[in-house]
């Protein structure tokens, strides 16, 4: 798979404060790339560099194998975290203006806006002023404006903030659909459940350094602890626990079950297979729950950040 966006060794310093230190990322074409990190890690600086709002001190950024240049502005759609619209301007006029700034002709912009306004069922907002809309409504307009010029690369910084669950879902579906239609998405958020739902790739930036990146599934494999969650039904719980503890490392588990099970997390040693555990357990008790523990993005995030 080709990389649409490549940043190589990007550093940026503000006075004595190093915002980015030799950060490299590669965003594969057609992926949803999660750019993660704690507050103040340098995510926004990196995004601003990609948007040519500011320039890196060192390092290079390439979009589709070309060094980043002003002409690329129309290939990027950017929804910043700090966002707003001209309050006293009418929705339609404003959307047209912003679309034209991104290089669309007035005619095309109008046609596409009509399509999106119908899709989001907000056609009757056209003549309203932004100040008459609620925050969530304005965000919808802002989302449309971001994607209207059909950019190759979409950058969303906390796209769901300010949306109710229904509208957040609507936006999420739109992002997925845009990806399916060929757009590449960089997605910056603190909400790990949306990372889990959306992202194929992630990069984790912490204290100006990139400390983790790759395919989400690979990272999860890397972070898995070979631990299995089991639910056992037995007459003699104490004997069973002692038997298992003599062979494996265990801890109590917590999951929903219909039976009054003995719930355990059992960690396997390297080289031990899940089948051997399963057959061992089957001899001793009735197994009605057997599940490999996969680390969540949230756990990976916290673990990695704390270890650095």
């Amino acid at each position: 798979m080709n990389n649409l966006l490549v940043a190589e060794g990007v550093s940026k310093q503000f006075g004595t404060y190093k915002a980015l230190n030799n950060v490299s990322i590669a965003v594969p074409e057609g992926s949803i790339f999660g750019l993660l990190g704690p507050n103040g890690a340098g995510k926004t600086t990196l995004i601003r560099i990609i948007n040519q709002i500011t320039m890196p001190d060192t390092g290079n950024v390439f979009l589709g194998n070309q060094a980043l240049q002003p002409a690329h502005i129309k290939d990027i759609g950017y929804l910043p975290e700090e966002r707003g619209l001209y309050k006293s301007m009418k929705v339609g006029e404003q959307a047209l203006y912003l679309a034209q700034l991104k290089g669309l002709s007035k005619h095309d912009a109008k046609k596409r806006l009509k399509y999106w306004f119908e899709k989001f069922e907000i056609g009757d907002w056209w003549g309203k002023k932004i100040q008459e809309l609620s925050k969530g409504m304005a965000q919808k307009v802002q989302f449309i404006v971001t994607v209207l010029h059909q950019p190759k690369l979409l950058i969303f910084d906390e796209p769901f903030s300010g949306f109710d669950p229904i509208n957040a879902n609507l936006i999420k579906d739109e992002i997925l659909q845009l990806r399916d239609e060929g757009a590449t998405v960089i997605f910056s958020t603190h909400r790990m459940e949306s990372v889990e739902e959306l992202c194929d790739h992630i990069a984790l930036i912490h204290q100006s350094n990139k400390i983790l990146d790759g395919k989400l599934i690979d990272i999860k494999r890397q972070y898995k602890s070979n631990t299995f969650e089991v639910g056992l039904v037995t007459d003699n719980e104490n004997d069973l626990i002692n038997t298992i503890n003599s062979k494996f490392k265990t801890s109590t588990a917590d999951f929903k079950s219909l039976n009054n099970d003995l719930k355990l997390n059992i960690k396997l040693q390297d080289g031990e297979s899940s089948n051997s555990l399963l057959s061992f357990l089957m001899e001793k008790a009735e197994v009605n729950h057997f599940n490999e523990l996969i680390p969540t993005a949230n756990e990976i995030f916290i673990k990695t950040v704390q270890n650095n």
Partner: peptide, 17 residues
């Protein structure tokens, strides 16, 4: 000052010089 108070500045500045 308008762009700053309406917080549209980053959207605008990522489109124009």
């Amino acid at each position: 000052i308008e762009e700053k108070t309406s917080r549209i500045i980053e959207v605008i500045i990522s489109s124009v010089k």
